[in-house]
Design a protein around this nucleic acid. Sequence first.
DNA 1: CGCCCAGTTGATCATTATCAAGATTTGTGG
DNA 2: CCACAAATCTTGATAATGATCAACTGGGCG
Lengths: 229, 229
Amino acid sequence: MSSAALKPPETFFHSKLFRGLGHEELAPLAAICQRRRIPSGEQLIRQYSAAQHVYVVVAGTLMIERLSRSGRRQVIAFSYPGDYIGFTNTEDYEYSVVCLREAELQVFPRREFLTLVDRFPTLKANARQVGGNVLAQTLDQLFALGQKKAHERLCFLLAQIGRRQCGAHNADIELIMSRQDIADYLGLTIETVSRAFARLKAMQLVEIVSAHRIRVLDRSVLEELASVQ
Amino acid sequence: MSSAALKPPETFFHSKLFRGLGHEELAPLAAICQRRRIPSGEQLIRQYSAAQHVYVVVAGTLMIERLSRSGRRQVIAFSYPGDYIGFTNTEDYEYSVVCLREAELQVFPRREFLTLVDRFPTLKANARQVGGNVLAQTLDQLFALGQKKAHERLCFLLAQIGRRQCGAHNADIELIMSRQDIADYLGLTIETVSRAFARLKAMQLVEIVSAHRIRVLDRSVLEELASVQ
DNA sequence: CGCCCAGTTGATCATTATCAAGATTTGTGG
DNA sequence: CCACAAATCTTGATAATGATCAACTGGGCG
């Protein structure tokens, strides 16, 4: 864990949170920023623990999930580079965060970070927008779970991941998470997820290169089935 | 629509948003606050319209919903006195709001309201908490839709309404919304909702006084089935 | 009074879950 | 690098749950 104060500010450019900021804003941010590397499989945030930090994903993939006493699990989101994590308004985190693929994160003490958010209008506007995106994304997922069939929900996830990693080549979708993770994200079982993949393949919407690599053959139909609008 | 500037500040006390505020904070709030009465059935917010106002419910009940192009509907929340509405971080509302029971609202111009939020730390803390509650509530609903069976989802709604109106007598739950509204909130059909009621009755958890009045007979079991923790 | 609408109940169908078996991938040690 | 074990994923058969279609009930209101 080394201070990022010595790092060039370009490392901040990965997130919407820091878009349009000048050196006078980035410098104090860098001053309170630390770096953290999380190996795959490790937990970053434990549900119900005190919310002391805000994170920005620089590299890797993480999964946000919620467990109930009865042992049921709801996956809330998959986090990619540029996403922020832990920006809750409550005292405690209401979810756990685990690392799916070795990740690198920027770590900010929550209180100091919020102070800077208050001080810099651009940062504040960004934070508000990013916070709004989280709610919007959750509402999308809510719509998918409430109104869509299994194969439509899977399209919803594929389209979402496709949009996220469109910076890469736009042909293949890489599924870092397991079938169980997908099932718990979509409110299904692994068997139903597997059959939903088979169905999309039969519909010639996708080609299943491997269990974790999906080639989209008809993006427009995929988007149509995925649409929550 | 009359300005609330002339009204006594007690009318503000209904919402968490205004808890702990002194006169120096309430006065400028009152200065930008207007009152609005909405008749039952009328629309307060149209999906995708520009987010220009923030509302606080003083009386009545409203329903927040989202419609897709394909005609499917997801009900997102039912709003009771003390709740705020429209406090989005995006440019446009991503949902519609309709009135279920004649409502009275405080109306604040969004921009001016946010300026005051910035100026007053207590108000800011309150706004943050309330905003956090919305996300928390949406995550609860997400868990219910993803992980729970029909009768458990119904318990989730009943427990939620029970908590909201517990200021009243704690015996009966009044359901202002229709069975279709409940169905679209829980991601079910009206028939399944009806059968879920019958099941809870058979389990002796509730008594169905009338279609819109439910007597809870065993709160602890109801809460257990409703629990998302 | 009788219509209309919301809600309920019943019969049947479709979808998803569960249980079980096989296939494939991944990880590990030789 | 291969072989084997373990874990993950897929597929099949069956059961449970919820959706759909249809008929019926009951309360509110002209």
